[in-house]
Amino acid sequence: MKSFEHVYRVHRLLKSRRYPVAFETLMEELECSRATTKRVLAYMRDVLGAPIETSREPRGYRYTDEAYELPGFWFSGEELQSLLTLQQLLATFQPGLLDDALGPLRKRLDQILESQGLTTGEAARIRLLRAAARPPGDHFATIAAAVLQRHRLKIDYESRATGKLSTREISPQRLVHYRDNWYLDAWCHQSDDLRTFAVDCVRCAEPLEASAQTVETEKLNARLGGSYGIFSGVPTATAVLRFTPERARWVAAEQWHPLQHGEWLPDGQYELSVPYHDDRELILDILRYGPDVEVMGPERLRSAVAERLRAAARRYA
Rank of each mutant, 00 (worst) to 15 (best):
K2L: 11
K2R: 01
K2P: 15
S3D: 11
S3P: 02
F4L: 14
E5C: 09
E5R: 00
R9E: 11
V10F: 05
L13Q: 04
Y19C: 03
Y19R: 10
P20Q: 08
A22Q: 09
E24N: 11
E28A: 15
E28W: 00
C32Y: 06
S33N: 05
K38Q: 14
R39K: 09
L41M: 04
A42D: 12
Y43T: 14
Y43S: 14
V47R: 04
L48I: 01
G49D: 12
G49S: 11
A50N: 04
E53I: 09
S55Q: 06
Y63N: 08
D65K: 12
E69H: 06
E69K: 10
P71E: 15
F73L: 15
W74E: 15
F75C: 11
Q81C: 13
Q88G: 14
A91P: 00
G96N: 02
D99V: 03
A101S: 14
R106L: 10
R106H: 12
Q111P: 03
I112F: 08
S115T: 04
G121K: 10
A123S: 13
A123W: 00
A124P: 03
R125N: 13
R127F: 15
A132M: 04
A132H: 06
A132D: 10
R134I: 13
D138W: 11
H139I: 01
H139M: 08
F140L: 12
I143D: 02
I143W: 01
A146T: 04
V147I: 14
V147L: 11
L148N: 12
I155P: 02
T167E: 15
E169D: 11
E169P: 00
S171F: 10
P172E: 14
P172M: 14
P172G: 11
R174Q: 15
L175A: 13
L175W: 03
Q190K: 08
S191H: 06
S191P: 01
D192W: 03
D192E: 13
D193V: 05
R195Q: 10
R195M: 07
V202G: 01
R203W: 11
C204H: 14
P207T: 01
A210N: 05
Q213A: 08
V215M: 06
E218Y: 00
E218P: 00
L220Q: 03
G226E: 14
S227P: 03
F231E: 15
G233N: 09
G233P: 09
P235Y: 12
F243Y: 08
E246F: 00
V251D: 05
H257D: 10
Q260H: 09
L265Q: 10
G268S: 07
Q269E: 07
Y270K: 01
D278N: 06
L282N: 02
I283D: 08
L284Q: 05
I286M: 07
I286G: 05
Y289N: 04
G290Q: 12
V295Q: 06
G297W: 00
R300W: 10
R302G: 07
V305Y: 03
R308Q: 15
R308A: 15
A313E: 13
